[in-house]
Write a protein that binds this DNA or RNA. Structure first.
Lengths: 245, 245
DNA sequence: GATGGAATGACAAACTTCTGACAATTAGGA
DNA sequence: TCCTAATTGTCAGAAGTTTGTCATTCCATC
């Protein structure tokens, strides 16, 4: 279903069809290692993106905002260490686990100086890498301690990107999830449309504020008991919206 | 008069102290760009200082302590990167957003190494720069999540835009919150209608002074134990009003 | 092309703000 | 103390904004 299954190297970002699950970005140039890592994480239920070089890795990182990055330090084009630095600068919360052949203690220090969260030296056991990634993810999970969040008769699983209302599955789009997540993470606070546009939609696109309203509408229709009388996604007239669980 | 909501007191949950006109320092040598940036931030309600070179920029920075710095990397005299370094060394909390023609990843790394908080590459959309500045400012004030203020039997939460009196929810409009916030921030001081109109209503609109009275009336009705005998929002005959908690 | 999500535009509905009039109050001088 | 002028309180609609909602268009993906 994707080229990692055979042995050809992947250079362009390869996103898996199955978008569910926590996203892991693997930046690795060795085709064999690509394959191993990909299968490993996929089998554990993660979504995996594999990039063959630093540049496409960075691009993919910006595009998909993965939950964690596995980075091989031996990369063409850009040095792995620079990739690490940029990622850490742009998004310090994202755990970066470095895979390398380095064994020198001095170099390990350097590594951690780059901002890497952890490192695994080749050759490594898959289980060790997996354990370290999961540990790193666990450490980072402050904003939403539990991957699932409940309010009223709704239950949201942000990791699985699935939602249920009154025990019936409700399908939300990617944007709707993002928006809902931002609300959950900033519960009770009044959030202006501007802020929502910036934080949820990002800086590249500039939709009208009407867009926000529309998505709120959709969320209400899908999650509120009575969309006409919103209880959780409240309008704050003249200011924005706020989420009250 | 809508999107400057983000820097005006109530709509974006802001920190209590010093809410009047957030100051932005623009260090940019190109006169045309100076004009554009100046107008842009001014229109959004920010106070703007523009400097044409690094040295005066640094001087201004030290003198006025702006809330954020917009820095063009192509500067005469001192290199932009040095300006950035110095600012970050002297005052690490101040967000520095770099504007440059750089697009190379390697250079971006360098940029972030300098301590810049974000960067925008030319040509950029004004909205993107604005969005990034606002995002940077927002990030800086996160620690103070809820800002509540109490007086008498009233409790105000400016972040949630909610108010209670004697444990009963009271609904205030956006303007009423803004006004109340300004009073809270300048407690005990006599505030003239002129000042209130300028600071709370902004420079775009020019309502009559009767408007202020009306809003005071509303606030009194909603928050005072006896609106006819105001205790907290006092009238100072011939001068204005003052808030006494 | 067909599909589904996202964005936009338009219009009505909901809500807030403003205005102007008049009443009530205050200050200060006769 | 009384009177006058100025200032402030209060109210009810008018005027203006903001939001809900739907239909339509756009866009990318299949």
């Amino acid at each position: 279903m994707l080229q990692n299954e055979n042995n050809s190297p992947v250079t362009a970002p390869e996103v898996l069809p199955t978008m569910t699950g926590t996203q892991i970005l693997v930046i690795e140039d060795d085709p064999r290692m690509q394959k191993i890592l990909h299968r490993m994480f996929r089998d554990q239920g993660y979504g995996v993106t594999v990039c063959g070089d630093g540049q496409s890795g960075l691009d993919s990182f910006r595009a998909s905002k993965p939950a964690a990055v596995i980075l091989d330090l031996m990369l063409p084009n850009i040095f792995g260490r620079d990739v690490c630095k940029v990622i850490k600068a742009e998004h310090p919360e994202t755990p970066v686990i470095v895979v390398s052949a380095i064994s020198e203690v001095a170099d390990k220090v350097l590594l951690l100086e780059l901002g890497a969260d952890d490192y695994v030296t080749k050759p490594f056991s898959p289980r060790e890498l997996m354990a370290r990634v999961q540990a790193a993810l666990r450490r980072r999970q402050k904003p939403i301690a539990t991957v699932t969040f409940s309010f009223g008769e709704c239950e949201i699983d942000f990791a699985k990107m699935s939602a249920r209302r009154a025990d019936k599955a409700v399908s939300l789009t990617a944007h709707e999830f993002k928006l809902l997540k931002y609300f959950v993470e900033h519960a009770e606070r009044v959030l202006s449309r501007e802020e929502l546009l910036n934080e949820v939609w990002g800086y590249q696109s500039y939709p009208t504020t009407r867009t926000v309203d529309n998505h709120i509408l959709k969320l209400r229709q899908k999650l509120e008991p009575d969309a006409a009388e919103p209880r959780y996604l409240q309008t704050v007239y003249g200011a924005g919206y706020k989420f009250v669980p």
